[in-house]
């Protein structure tokens, strides 16, 4: 359960930092009457949707941290034998990276009001994300063809389960991206709304990319080796 505890520490750290800005040591009964004296402690001015997405990403982060925790605990048992890393995973990772970059370009374009570029970025991001999902399915089929079935070994089961969960989240993101894209092609895209919408997509995409990179490290066994090296250095 180390992974989830570490991730929670990070979440609590952020929450604690925010709370420390909120004058929790003040004595509210002495401060009656003033409304605007403590501007920093009023409701935040960040867009609701952005805060909502931020909280949601913390939840998703916990979800994947828990899968990783389960993975590392199950790994200790004798019957564990990890499947090989299909080379195609590298290509898929590259495609997902491209998708994230495209969305980031779309975001910059949206901020500059370049509608054409926004459309290009959104379309590229959508198509590359779909390509990533297809690539993941090809990886599954490849593993299966080589005899690494779901039930053959818990490591295989975890591989399918974790990549599947990540894929589902990408799929959910595609639904949001579709909405944003249709707005970008709409008759009169309100620039502020469109920018926010693209920004949310970009946040989600970057987060899922980071999650994927972390999962890739774990699934390929590098995380384990890295921790092993750290342990040796410490002892």
């Amino acid at each position: 359960m180390t992974v989830i505890v570490v991730v929670l520490m990070v979440v609590f750290g952020i929450a604690g930092w925010w709370l420390s800005q909120q004058r929790l040591m003040s004595k509210p009964w002495l401060e009656a009457g003033s409304v605007a004296a403590f501007p920093g402690t009023e409701s935040g001015s960040m867009p609701m949707a952005k805060v909502g997405l931020g909280v949601f990403l913390a939840v998703v982060g916990c979800l994947f941290a828990l899968f990783t925790s389960a993975y590392s605990m199950r790994m200790e048992y004798a019957d564990w034998s990890a499947p090989p890393v299909p080379p195609l995973l590298w290509i898929n990772t590259g495609i997902l990276l491209l998708s994230s970059v495209a969305l980031h370009c779309a975001l910059i374009a949206a901020r500059n009001g370049q509608t054409e570029l926004v459309r290009l970025g959104l379309a590229t991001a959508g198509l590359t994300a779909i390509a990533f999902l297809i690539g993941q399915i090809v990886v599954w089929r490849e593993l299966e063809a080589n005899g690494h079935f779901l039930t053959a070994n818990p490591a295989n089961a975890f591989f399918y389960l974790i990549t599947g969960m990540h894929g589902l989240h990408i799929l959910g993101g595609l639904a949001g991206l579709a909405r944003t894209t249709s707005r970008a092609w709409g008759p009169d895209p309100a620039p502020a709304k469109l920018t926010l919408s693209v920004e949310l997509c970009a946040m989600y995409w970057h987060f899922l990319l980071i999650v994927w990179l972390a999962l890739f490290l774990v699934l390929a066994g590098w995380a384990e080796r890295f921790i092993g090296v750290c342990r040796q250095l410490l002892t």
Partner: peptide, 9 residues
Amino acid sequence: ARTRGMTLM
């Protein structure tokens, strides 16, 4: 969405 003046405390 806290209203004006509604600080956490």
